[in-house]
Amino acid sequence: MANTSSAKKMVRKIERRTAVNKARRSRVRTYLRKVEEAIASGDQAAAQDALRVAQSEMFRAVSKGVVAKNTASRKVSRLSSRVKAISA
């Protein structure tokens, strides 16, 4: 356990930051799940709308440091190709 006052303060800061990051990650997953559900239903218009919102949310998470840039780009790329494949 932390002994010094600065170490105790760091523990408090880390707990707050962890809670915020956890909420952001959960929010991103929710939007990704909405895209998955739209793809599964076969509705391309809904899937495109959901993808647009999910993409902005993913890159917001990147800017906050929750998700790595390449990870977000890979996920968005794969989802967009799946959305495009619905019409084919």
Score class of each variant (00 low, 15 high):
Val35His: 02
Gly65Cys: 07
Leu79Glu: 01
Asn70Arg: 15
Lys75Ala: 11
Gly65Gln: 11
Gln48Phe: 04
Glu37Gln: 12
Arg33Gly: 01
Thr71Ala: 15
Gln48Cys: 09
Val35Leu: 02
Leu51Asp: 02
Ser56Tyr: 13
Met1Gln: 09
Ser77His: 10
Arg25Pro: 05
Arg24Cys: 04
Thr18Leu: 09
Ser81Asp: 04
Arg74Gly: 12
Met58Arg: 10
Arg12Thr: 01
Arg52Ser: 11
Asp43Cys: 02
Arg29Ser: 15
Ser41Met: 02
Ala54Val: 09
Gln48Pro: 06
Lys64Ile: 13
Thr71Ile: 09
Ser63Gln: 14
Thr71Phe: 03
Arg74Tyr: 07
Ser81Met: 09
Ser81Ala: 08
Arg33Glu: 08
Lys64Pro: 10
Ser41Cys: 03
Met58His: 15
Ala88Cys: 06
Thr30Arg: 11
Asp49Phe: 02
Arg17Pro: 00
Ser81Val: 11
Gly42Gln: 12
Ala72Phe: 08
Ala38Cys: 00
Asn21Cys: 10
Ala38Lys: 00
Lys8Met: 07
Arg16Leu: 02
Ile14Cys: 00
Arg52His: 14
Val83Lys: 02
Leu79Gly: 01
Asp49Gly: 15
Ile39His: 01
Val11Trp: 14
Val53His: 05
Ala40Pro: 09
Met10Val: 05
Asn3Gln: 09
Thr4Ala: 02
Thr71Asp: 12
Lys84Asp: 08
Glu37Phe: 05
Ala54Cys: 10
Arg27Gly: 02
Ala19Arg: 10
Met58Val: 14
Ala61Cys: 14
Lys64Glu: 15
Ala46Glu: 10
Ser73Pro: 05
Ile14Leu: 11
Gly65Phe: 03
Ala45Glu: 03
Lys84Thr: 11
Arg78Tyr: 07
Ser81Arg: 15
Arg60Gly: 08
Gln44Ala: 10
Arg16Gly: 07
Ala47Val: 00
Ser5Pro: 05
Ala40Trp: 07
Arg60Gln: 14
Ala23Lys: 09
Ala40Leu: 10
Val66Gly: 03
Val66Pro: 03
Arg74Thr: 14
Lys22Gln: 14
Phe59Leu: 13
Arg25Gly: 00
Phe59Met: 13
Asn21Arg: 12
Ala85Thr: 13
Ala68Lys: 14
Val62Arg: 14
Gln48Arg: 15
Ser26Met: 12
Lys69Gln: 10
Val53Met: 08
Lys34Trp: 02
Lys34Leu: 12
Ala54Trp: 03
Asp43Phe: 11
Ala7Gly: 05
Thr30His: 07
Ser26Leu: 13
Asn3Ala: 08
Ala19Asn: 09
Leu79Thr: 03
Arg33Thr: 04
Val53Tyr: 15
Val62Leu: 07
Leu51Gly: 03
Arg29Ile: 00
Val28Gln: 01
Glu15Trp: 10
Arg33Cys: 04
Lys22Asn: 14
Ser77Pro: 13
Val76Leu: 09
Ile86Gly: 04
Arg17Trp: 04
Arg74Phe: 12
Glu37Arg: 01
Thr71Lys: 13
